[in-house]
Simulated scan of single mutants.
Amino acid sequence: MAHMTLDVSLDPVVARMRALDGLLDPRDGVAVFNRVYLAVTEELRDRIGRGRFPEARTATTLAAVFAGRYLAAVEAAYEGHRVPACWRPLFQYRRHPGVRPLQYALAGINAHIGHDLPLAVVASCRELSLEPAALEADFDRVGDTLVALEERIREDLMPGPDLLEVADPLTHLLGSWSLERARGAAWSSARLLWTLRAHPELAEEVTDSLDAGVGLVGRCLLTPAPCPR
C-alpha cells in the first residue's frame, strides 16, 4: 500500500539542507557538495511542481528517499557514528588544502549516485509497491536534471583556464569520472538489488561491495591536486 507517500514533499529535505548550509564554513568540502545538492533538489522540486514529471508522487518519493540517504550520512558523521564507505572520503578530506571545490562536488555526486541512488530506487519501489520498471522514467528525468546541473557545477567551480592545463592533475581527475556512466551503473545496481530482495544476505554482500567500490572512486577523486605554478 502506498498511502504513506500521498503527502510526501521535498520541502523538509530542502529545509534541512538550507539549515546545514548556514552551519558550515563555505570552504568545507561537505558545504561545497551541500550547496550543489541543495540546488539540485530545489530544481527537482520546481520541475515536479511545474508538471515536468507525469507521476509527481513517484518522482517526489524517489527524490525524498534519495536525499534522505545523504542527510543520514551527515547526521551519522556529526553524531560520531560510522559513515558509509562511499561518503567517508568526503568527510575525511573536507578541509584538505590541496583539494579543490570541484573535487568535493564530484566526490559527493559520486557517492550519492553510485551508492545511494540504487538503494533509494529499491526503497522507493518497496514503499510504493512498484517494480523498478515503473520508476525508470522518473529515474531518467531525475538523471537528466542532474546532468544539466553538473554542467553548471563544472562551470561555477572550474578553475580558470590558465590553471586547467594538460599537466594539471585535476585535468586527469575530471576526465576519469562521468555522471552518465555513474547513472547507468546505478540503474543496473538497482535492478540487481531488486532481484536479490528475496536473498537478504546476498543483497547485503552486494551492497557492501558497491559501497566500498564507490568509496574507492571517491578517494581517487579527492586526490590532492595542487595548482600548477
Rank of each mutant, 00 (worst) to 15 (best):
A107P: 12
A107I: 03
A107E: 12
G108M: 14
G108R: 10
G108K: 08
G108S: 07
G108A: 06
G108Q: 10
I109P: 01
I109G: 10
N110H: 15
N110V: 03
N110A: 15
N110I: 02
A111H: 12
A111R: 04
A111D: 08
A111Y: 09
A111N: 10
A111E: 09
H112S: 03
H112P: 02
H112Q: 14
H112V: 05
H112C: 05
I113F: 14
I113D: 07
I113P: 07
G114D: 07
G114H: 13
G114S: 08
G114Q: 12
G114K: 09
H115A: 09
H115D: 14
H115L: 10
H115V: 08
H115T: 05
H115R: 10
H115M: 14
H115P: 00
D116R: 10
D116H: 09
L117T: 04
L117R: 08
L117A: 07
L117M: 13
L117V: 04
L117I: 06
L117G: 02
P118I: 14
P118W: 11
L119Y: 01
L119F: 01
L119Q: 01
V121K: 00
V121P: 00
V122L: 06
A123P: 02
A123R: 05
A123G: 04
S124W: 01
S124C: 07
S124L: 00
C125Y: 00
C125F: 01
C125H: 01
R126W: 06
R126I: 12
R126D: 12
E127T: 14
E127K: 10
E127W: 07
E127M: 15
L128F: 00
L128Y: 02
L128I: 09
L128R: 00
S129H: 12
S129I: 07
L130M: 13
L130N: 07
E131N: 11
E131Y: 12
E131H: 13
E131S: 15
P132L: 02
P132Y: 12
P132V: 09
P132T: 04
P132C: 03
A133W: 14
A134R: 10
A134M: 06
A134C: 03
L135W: 03
L135T: 00
L135P: 00
L135S: 04
E136V: 03
E136W: 04
E136C: 08
E136L: 12
A137Y: 08
D138E: 13
D138C: 05
F139A: 07
F139M: 06
F139D: 02
F139R: 04
F139H: 12
F139G: 09
F139K: 02
D140S: 11
D140M: 06
D140L: 13
D140G: 07
D140V: 14
R141Q: 13
R141W: 08
R141P: 03
V142D: 01
V142P: 02
V142G: 01
G143H: 05
G143P: 11
D144S: 10
D144R: 04
D144W: 04
D144H: 06
T145C: 15
L146M: 11
L146A: 13
L146G: 10
V147M: 14
V147R: 15
V147D: 08
V147K: 15
